[in-house]
Amino acid sequence: METIELLERLAQSRGVAGQESAAAEVACAELKQYAESVAVDPMGSVTAVIKRGSPLVLLDAHLDEIGLIVTWLGDNGFLKAGAVGGVDRRLLIAQEVVILAEEPVEGVIASKPPHLLSAEEEKKVPKVDDLWIDTGYTSEELRKRVKLGDRIIFKSGFHKLLGGRVCSKALDDRAGVAAVLRALELLKNEPLSCGLAATFTCQEELGCLGAKTASYTVEPDLAVTVDVSFAHTPDAPEHKCGKLGGGTMIGISPTLDKGVSDALTALAQEKEIPYQLEVMGGLTSTNADSITVSRGGVKCGLLSIPLRYMHTPIETIDPADVESTARLMAEFVKKAGGKNA
Protein backbone atom coordinates (compact mmCIF):
# COMPACT_ATOMS: atom_id res chain seq x y z
CA MET A 1 0.00 0.00 0.00
CA GLU A 2 1.44 3.30 -1.08
CA THR A 3 0.16 5.19 1.99
CA ILE A 4 2.50 3.14 4.16
CA GLU A 5 5.54 4.13 2.10
CA LEU A 6 4.43 7.75 2.30
CA LEU A 7 3.99 7.45 6.07
CA GLU A 8 7.45 5.97 6.43
CA ARG A 9 9.07 8.65 4.29
CA LEU A 10 7.37 11.43 6.23
CA ALA A 11 7.75 9.99 9.74
CA GLN A 12 11.41 9.12 9.29
CA SER A 13 12.27 12.61 7.99
CA ARG A 14 13.67 14.97 10.61
CA GLY A 15 11.90 18.07 11.84
CA VAL A 16 11.93 19.07 15.49
CA ALA A 17 9.98 22.26 16.24
CA GLY A 18 12.02 25.23 15.03
CA GLN A 19 14.19 23.13 12.72
CA GLU A 20 11.68 21.55 10.35
CA SER A 21 13.48 22.14 7.05
CA ALA A 22 14.40 18.51 6.31
CA ALA A 23 10.83 17.35 6.91
CA ALA A 24 9.58 20.33 4.90
CA GLU A 25 11.66 19.24 1.92
CA VAL A 26 10.08 15.81 1.94
CA ALA A 27 6.58 17.29 2.27
CA CYS A 28 7.23 19.87 -0.50
CA ALA A 29 8.42 17.18 -2.88
CA GLU A 30 5.12 15.33 -2.36
CA LEU A 31 3.01 18.48 -2.57
CA LYS A 32 4.44 19.67 -5.89
CA GLN A 33 2.52 17.10 -7.93
CA TYR A 34 -0.80 18.58 -6.78
CA ALA A 35 -0.09 22.29 -6.32
CA GLU A 36 -0.06 25.40 -8.52
CA SER A 37 2.55 26.87 -6.20
CA VAL A 38 4.41 25.82 -3.07
CA ALA A 39 6.25 28.18 -0.72
CA VAL A 40 7.93 28.12 2.67
CA ASP A 41 6.90 31.04 4.90
CA PRO A 42 9.32 33.02 7.12
CA MET A 43 8.56 30.78 10.13
CA GLY A 44 9.27 27.60 8.18
CA SER A 45 5.76 26.39 7.35
CA VAL A 46 4.98 24.97 3.92
CA THR A 47 2.06 26.67 2.19
CA ALA A 48 0.60 25.53 -1.11
CA VAL A 49 -2.06 26.82 -3.45
CA ILE A 50 -3.69 23.79 -5.04
CA LYS A 51 -6.29 25.77 -6.93
CA ARG A 52 -7.41 29.39 -6.74
CA GLY A 53 -11.11 30.03 -6.17
CA SER A 54 -13.82 30.87 -3.68
CA PRO A 55 -14.60 29.83 -1.07
CA LEU A 56 -11.01 28.96 -0.29
CA VAL A 57 -10.72 25.71 1.70
CA LEU A 58 -7.57 25.03 3.68
CA LEU A 59 -6.37 21.54 4.60
CA ASP A 60 -3.76 21.69 7.35
CA ALA A 61 -1.49 19.46 9.41
CA HIS A 62 1.62 20.23 11.42
CA LEU A 63 5.08 19.29 10.29
CA ASP A 64 7.08 19.49 13.49
CA GLU A 65 7.80 16.74 15.99
CA ILE A 66 8.82 16.87 19.63
CA GLY A 67 12.49 16.47 20.52
CA LEU A 68 15.33 18.08 22.42
CA ILE A 69 17.74 20.97 21.89
CA VAL A 70 21.46 21.17 22.73
CA THR A 71 22.01 23.62 25.60
CA TRP A 72 25.53 22.82 26.86
CA LEU A 73 28.65 21.01 25.65
CA GLY A 74 30.45 19.16 28.44
CA ASP A 75 33.66 17.11 28.61
CA ASN A 76 34.40 13.78 26.98
CA GLY A 77 31.63 13.97 24.40
CA PHE A 78 28.77 14.49 26.86
CA LEU A 79 26.25 17.27 26.30
CA LYS A 80 23.11 18.61 27.96
CA ALA A 81 19.77 19.30 26.32
CA GLY A 82 16.42 20.95 26.93
CA ALA A 83 12.98 19.65 25.96
CA VAL A 84 11.29 20.90 22.80
CA GLY A 85 7.58 20.18 23.27
CA GLY A 86 5.94 17.79 25.70
CA VAL A 87 8.56 15.07 26.04
CA ASP A 88 7.65 12.06 28.21
CA ARG A 89 10.65 12.11 30.55
CA ARG A 90 9.99 8.64 31.90
CA LEU A 91 11.36 6.98 28.79
CA LEU A 92 14.43 9.08 28.03
CA ILE A 93 17.11 6.92 29.64
CA ALA A 94 19.17 4.83 27.19
CA GLN A 95 17.25 6.11 24.17
CA GLU A 96 19.20 6.56 20.97
CA VAL A 97 19.09 10.08 19.56
CA VAL A 98 20.37 11.97 16.53
CA ILE A 99 21.69 15.50 16.95
CA LEU A 100 20.73 17.48 13.86
CA ALA A 101 24.10 19.15 13.45
CA GLU A 102 25.45 19.98 10.00
CA GLU A 103 26.58 16.34 9.85
CA PRO A 104 24.09 14.42 12.03
CA VAL A 105 25.70 13.09 15.23
CA GLU A 106 24.34 9.97 16.90
CA GLY A 107 24.19 9.61 20.65
CA VAL A 108 22.72 7.78 23.62
CA ILE A 109 20.97 9.35 26.60
CA ALA A 110 23.25 8.39 29.46
CA SER A 111 22.21 6.90 32.76
CA LYS A 112 23.86 6.18 36.04
CA PRO A 113 23.86 2.46 36.74
CA PRO A 114 21.19 1.32 39.24
CA HIS A 115 23.74 0.54 41.98
CA LEU A 116 24.64 4.23 42.21
CA LEU A 117 21.02 5.28 42.74
CA SER A 118 19.33 5.55 46.12
CA ALA A 119 16.02 3.72 46.45
CA GLU A 120 14.30 7.11 46.18
CA GLU A 121 16.23 8.17 43.09
CA GLU A 122 15.34 4.90 41.42
CA LYS A 123 11.64 5.70 41.63
CA LYS A 124 11.99 9.30 40.50
CA VAL A 125 11.91 10.34 36.87
CA PRO A 126 14.94 12.52 36.08
CA LYS A 127 14.49 16.10 34.89
CA VAL A 128 15.71 16.66 31.34
CA ASP A 129 18.31 18.95 32.85
CA ASP A 130 19.74 16.11 34.97
CA LEU A 131 20.50 13.97 31.94
CA TRP A 132 23.57 13.81 29.74
CA ILE A 133 23.72 12.73 26.12
CA ASP A 134 26.75 10.59 25.29
CA THR A 135 28.08 11.21 21.77
CA GLY A 136 31.23 9.14 22.25
CA TYR A 137 33.39 11.98 20.90
CA THR A 138 36.36 13.62 22.56
CA SER A 139 35.72 17.09 24.02
CA GLU A 140 37.47 18.70 21.07
CA GLU A 141 35.73 16.66 18.40
CA LEU A 142 32.33 17.33 19.99
CA ARG A 143 32.88 21.09 19.76
CA LYS A 144 33.81 20.81 16.09
CA ARG A 145 30.65 18.91 15.28
CA VAL A 146 27.84 20.15 17.53
CA LYS A 147 26.60 23.69 18.21
CA LEU A 148 24.36 24.99 20.97
CA GLY A 149 20.81 25.12 19.65
CA ASP A 150 21.10 22.07 17.42
CA ARG A 151 17.88 20.09 17.65
CA ILE A 152 17.82 16.44 18.67
CA ILE A 153 15.40 13.76 17.51
CA PHE A 154 14.72 10.29 18.84
CA LYS A 155 16.19 7.62 16.65
CA SER A 156 13.60 4.97 16.01
CA GLY A 157 12.81 2.88 13.02
CA PHE A 158 9.53 2.51 11.17
CA HIS A 159 8.02 -0.85 12.16
CA LYS A 160 5.05 -2.84 10.93
CA LEU A 161 2.88 -4.49 13.59
CA LEU A 162 0.05 -6.98 13.17
CA GLY A 163 -3.13 -5.96 11.39
CA GLY A 164 -1.33 -3.43 9.18
CA ARG A 165 -0.60 -1.12 12.11
CA VAL A 166 2.64 0.82 12.03
CA CYS A 167 4.88 2.48 14.59
CA SER A 168 7.51 5.20 14.35
CA LYS A 169 8.60 8.45 15.91
CA ALA A 170 6.85 11.59 14.59
CA LEU A 171 3.62 10.01 13.39
CA ASP A 172 2.32 12.99 15.41
CA ASP A 173 1.68 14.66 13.03
CA ARG A 174 3.28 13.27 9.87
CA ALA A 175 0.29 10.91 9.78
CA GLY A 176 -1.78 14.10 9.44
CA VAL A 177 0.52 15.35 6.67
CA ALA A 178 0.07 12.00 4.91
CA ALA A 179 -3.73 12.29 5.25
CA VAL A 180 -3.73 15.74 3.64
CA LEU A 181 -1.50 14.51 0.79
CA ARG A 182 -3.77 11.50 0.29
CA ALA A 183 -6.84 13.79 0.21
CA LEU A 184 -5.15 15.88 -2.48
CA GLU A 185 -4.52 12.71 -4.45
CA LEU A 186 -8.19 11.75 -4.18
CA LEU A 187 -9.14 15.23 -5.41
CA LYS A 188 -6.60 15.31 -8.22
CA ASN A 189 -9.03 14.76 -11.07
CA GLU A 190 -12.09 16.31 -9.45
CA PRO A 191 -13.48 19.46 -11.07
CA LEU A 192 -13.61 21.74 -8.01
CA SER A 193 -15.69 24.88 -7.92
CA CYS A 194 -13.99 26.09 -4.73
CA GLY A 195 -10.42 27.11 -4.10
CA LEU A 196 -8.07 24.77 -2.27
CA ALA A 197 -4.91 25.35 -0.24
CA ALA A 198 -2.75 23.20 1.99
CA THR A 199 -0.40 24.06 4.84
CA PHE A 200 2.12 21.92 6.70
CA THR A 201 2.95 24.11 9.62
CA CYS A 202 5.93 24.41 11.93
CA GLN A 203 6.11 24.80 15.71
CA GLU A 204 2.75 23.28 16.65
CA GLU A 205 4.41 21.61 19.61
CA LEU A 206 5.46 25.04 20.91
CA GLY A 207 1.90 26.40 20.94
CA CYS A 208 0.47 26.19 17.41
CA LEU A 209 2.68 29.07 16.28
CA GLY A 210 3.25 28.10 12.65
CA ALA A 211 -0.48 27.81 12.01
CA LYS A 212 -0.91 31.41 13.16
CA THR A 213 1.22 32.88 10.41
CA ALA A 214 0.42 30.32 7.72
CA SER A 215 -3.33 30.73 8.06
CA TYR A 216 -2.89 34.51 8.01
CA THR A 217 -1.02 34.22 4.73
CA VAL A 218 -3.36 31.72 3.09
CA GLU A 219 -6.49 33.57 4.28
CA PRO A 220 -8.96 30.68 3.94
CA ASP A 221 -12.73 30.84 4.27
CA LEU A 222 -13.01 27.30 5.57
CA ALA A 223 -10.46 24.97 7.07
CA VAL A 224 -10.00 21.41 8.23
CA THR A 225 -6.94 20.68 10.32
CA VAL A 226 -5.70 17.15 10.90
CA ASP A 227 -3.86 16.10 14.02
CA VAL A 228 -3.53 12.92 16.01
CA SER A 229 -5.47 12.11 19.16
CA PHE A 230 -5.38 9.45 21.85
CA ALA A 231 -6.21 5.89 20.88
CA HIS A 232 -7.38 3.84 23.80
CA THR A 233 -5.14 1.53 25.80
CA PRO A 234 -6.37 -0.16 28.99
CA ASP A 235 -4.44 2.23 31.26
CA ALA A 236 -6.15 5.33 29.84
CA PRO A 237 -9.65 6.74 30.53
CA GLU A 238 -11.93 5.42 27.81
CA HIS A 239 -14.00 8.60 27.51
CA LYS A 240 -10.92 10.62 26.57
CA CYS A 241 -9.84 8.24 23.81
CA GLY A 242 -10.81 7.05 20.38
CA LYS A 243 -10.39 3.52 19.12
CA LEU A 244 -7.36 2.55 17.03
CA GLY A 245 -8.70 1.51 13.63
CA GLY A 246 -12.12 2.91 14.51
CA GLY A 247 -12.08 5.58 11.82
CA THR A 248 -11.29 9.28 11.70
CA MET A 249 -12.18 11.22 14.85
CA ILE A 250 -14.44 14.21 14.12
CA GLY A 251 -13.81 16.97 16.65
CA ILE A 252 -16.69 18.69 18.44
CA SER A 253 -15.84 21.62 20.69
CA PRO A 254 -17.06 25.11 21.58
CA THR A 255 -13.97 26.44 19.79
CA LEU A 256 -14.61 24.57 16.53
CA ASP A 257 -17.19 25.59 13.93
CA LYS A 258 -20.38 23.62 14.54
CA GLY A 259 -21.38 23.83 10.89
CA VAL A 260 -18.13 22.22 9.79
CA SER A 261 -18.31 19.50 12.48
CA ASP A 262 -21.91 18.72 11.50
CA ALA A 263 -21.09 18.71 7.79
CA LEU A 264 -18.17 16.30 8.39
CA THR A 265 -20.41 13.97 10.41
CA ALA A 266 -23.19 14.03 7.81
CA LEU A 267 -20.73 13.34 5.00
CA ALA A 268 -19.11 10.46 6.90
CA GLN A 269 -22.56 8.89 7.30
CA GLU A 270 -23.61 9.54 3.72
CA LYS A 271 -20.38 8.20 2.18
CA GLU A 272 -20.06 5.40 4.73
CA ILE A 273 -16.65 6.53 5.90
CA PRO A 274 -15.67 5.03 9.30
CA TYR A 275 -15.69 7.79 11.94
CA GLN A 276 -15.93 8.41 15.65
CA LEU A 277 -16.72 11.60 17.54
CA GLU A 278 -14.26 13.34 19.82
CA VAL A 279 -15.84 15.88 22.12
CA MET A 280 -13.70 18.46 23.93
CA GLY A 281 -14.77 21.14 26.37
CA GLY A 282 -12.73 24.04 25.02
CA LEU A 283 -9.41 24.48 23.28
CA THR A 284 -8.34 21.48 21.25
CA SER A 285 -4.56 21.82 21.63
CA THR A 286 -4.28 21.58 17.87
CA ASN A 287 -3.70 24.04 15.04
CA ALA A 288 -7.48 24.60 14.99
CA ASP A 289 -7.00 26.83 18.05
CA SER A 290 -4.88 29.19 15.92
CA ILE A 291 -6.70 28.89 12.60
CA THR A 292 -10.19 29.63 13.98
CA VAL A 293 -9.06 33.06 15.21
CA SER A 294 -6.87 33.95 12.22
CA ARG A 295 -7.53 37.45 10.79
CA GLY A 296 -11.30 38.04 11.10
CA GLY A 297 -11.99 34.36 11.94
CA VAL A 298 -12.12 31.11 10.00
CA LYS A 299 -14.74 28.36 10.13
CA CYS A 300 -12.56 25.44 11.07
CA GLY A 301 -13.11 21.75 11.77
CA LEU A 302 -10.77 19.15 13.24
CA LEU A 303 -10.16 15.57 12.20
CA SER A 304 -7.90 13.40 14.33
CA ILE A 305 -6.12 10.16 13.61
CA PRO A 306 -6.21 7.91 16.69
CA LEU A 307 -2.67 7.18 17.88
CA ARG A 308 -1.25 5.19 20.76
CA TYR A 309 1.81 6.23 22.81
CA MET A 310 1.80 9.90 21.79
CA HIS A 311 5.07 11.84 22.12
CA THR A 312 7.23 8.71 22.26
CA PRO A 313 9.57 7.08 19.73
CA ILE A 314 6.95 4.32 19.25
CA GLU A 315 3.83 6.22 18.20
CA THR A 316 1.42 3.66 16.76
CA ILE A 317 -1.40 4.14 14.24
CA ASP A 318 -3.63 2.16 11.92
CA PRO A 319 -3.17 3.43 8.34
CA ALA A 320 -6.87 2.73 7.73
CA ASP A 321 -7.58 5.73 9.97
CA VAL A 322 -5.35 7.89 7.75
CA GLU A 323 -7.38 6.72 4.76
CA SER A 324 -10.77 7.48 6.35
CA THR A 325 -9.47 10.92 7.38
CA ALA A 326 -8.28 11.61 3.83
CA ARG A 327 -11.54 10.43 2.27
CA LEU A 328 -13.65 12.57 4.57
CA MET A 329 -11.52 15.64 3.88
CA ALA A 330 -11.81 15.04 0.14
CA GLU A 331 -15.60 14.72 0.37
CA PHE A 332 -15.73 17.91 2.44
CA VAL A 333 -13.75 19.82 -0.20
CA LYS A 334 -15.94 18.48 -3.03
CA LYS A 335 -19.01 19.67 -1.21
CA ALA A 336 -17.55 23.04 -0.21
CA GLY A 337 -17.84 24.30 -3.76
CA GLY A 338 -21.63 23.93 -3.48
CA LYS A 339 -23.89 25.22 -0.72
CA ASN A 340 -22.10 23.44 2.14
CA ALA A 341 -20.52 26.55 3.62
Binding site: G86, V87, L161, D235, A236, P237, S285, R308, H311, I314
Partner: peptide, 13 residues
Protein backbone atom coordinates in the same frame (compact mmCIF):
# COMPACT_ATOMS: atom_id res chain seq x y z
CA UNK B 1 10.36 -11.96 15.72
CA UNK B 2 7.13 -9.95 15.66
CA UNK B 3 7.67 -6.29 16.40
CA UNK B 4 6.01 -5.09 19.58
CA UNK B 5 6.10 -1.76 21.37
CA UNK B 6 6.05 -0.94 25.07
CA UNK B 7 4.09 2.23 25.82
CA UNK B 8 1.61 3.70 28.26
CA UNK B 9 -1.12 6.30 28.09
CA UNK B 10 0.20 9.57 26.67
CA UNK B 11 2.08 12.11 28.76
CA UNK B 12 -0.89 14.47 28.28
CA UNK B 13 -3.16 12.15 30.27
Amino acid sequence: KLTGVIGTKAVHM
